[in-house]
């Protein structure tokens, strides 16, 4: 049994929120740099260079890469042998978000109610997904999610007979419809299988994977590569102004599903694609 203090979680989460928003992850930076070399549109090339320059300014001044510092989404793996002392884990995470978004001068973008829209002024509550695992570690991943891209995401309950062609068609349709809105170049998280909500969760989780890696299953790794190629032939390009870099990466995650179903969720992210993980 390991005991972790409430305040330690609060302080760790606060730091993670600031770090995720101000420092562009190295995988994304590499992906942008690689794309810049191949981009056929001069305007597109210029935009990709400006995105790198923007990340440099953000890192140097420790200001957010993008003003939409997102709704704070968490994936938390709680070891069965972990005991939290001083309060609940959920409260600790929300206190950490409150502290991080205030101390880090991050934007508060959360409204208390979806229809009666009053800003909570501290970016809480966070959206937290828990997973209970073996051991005595507490693994926290924060992935602040901007809504320019979140709004262009989609779910479709395909028929098993639609197969892989149905999945490809749906992904391309979703990306094409998103067009310039999610600030391309995008990162595309795809969840295939499970139930309706499980597919969405997989798609979100897929966005926390290193953008330079592929699914460990060769079939899905190849599907990721095929989709990325096809997406980059849509012509949308950086900022939607035309070009060959529409997406930087396609990440697929899967789960067993029902004999009658083929749920597919496409969660679109912008080039910032923030995620930071800490283990306590």
């Amino acid at each position: 049994m390991k005991t972790i203090q409430y305040d330690k979680i609060v302080n760790t989460v606060a730091k993670m929120c600031i770090d995720a928003n101000c420092n562009l992850n190295s995988d994304i930076r590499t992906a942008i740099e690689q794309s810049e070399k191949c981009e056929k549109s001069p305007v597109g090339k210029d935009i990709l260079q400006k995105l790198i320059a923007n990340a440099d300014i953000a890192a140097e001044k420790q200001v957010p890469i993008c003003q939409d510092t997102g709704m704070a989404v968490f994936f938390v793996k709680v070891g069965q042998d972990v005991h939290i002392e001083g309060g609940s884990l959920t409260n600790a995470i929300n206190d950490g978000v409150r502290k991080g978004y205030t101390d880090g001068y991050l934007r508060k973008s959360v409204v208390k109610d979806p229809l009666n829209r009053i800003n909570t002024k501290d970016n809480t509550p966070a959206v937290i997904h828990y997973d209970i695992v073996e051991g005595d570690l507490l693994e926290i991943t924060v992935a602040p999610k901007g809504f320019g891209s979140e709004n262009m995401s989609a779910l479709r309950m395909l028929k098993p007979a639609d197969g892989v062609d149905g999945v490809i068609g749906f992904v391309l349709e979703t990306v094409e419809k998103a067009g310039p809105n999610p600030c391309p170049p995008m990162v595309i998280g795809i969840g295939i299988g499970g139930t309706m909500e499980k597919a969405c969760l997989l798609a979100k989780q897929a966005l926390t994977r290193d953008a330079l890696t592929h699914n460990s299953d060769e079939y899905y790794a190849n599907l990721e590569k095929e989709l990325l190629q096809k997406i980059n032939k849509l012509g949308i390009g950086p900022q939607g102004l035309g070009g060959t870099t529409t997406a930087l990466s396609v990440n697929i995650e899967t789960f067993p599903t029902h004999i009658a179903g083929l749920p597919v969720a496409v969660n679109i992210n912008c080039h910032v694609t923030r995620h930071v993980t800490e283990i306590l």
């Binding site: 400006k50 995105l51 923007n54 300014i57 953000a58 890469i65 600030c183």
Partner: peptide, 11 residues
Amino acid sequence: GAIGGAGALMA
């Protein structure tokens, strides 16, 4: 259009 996601540059 301004460059989306380049908030530090725009500032």
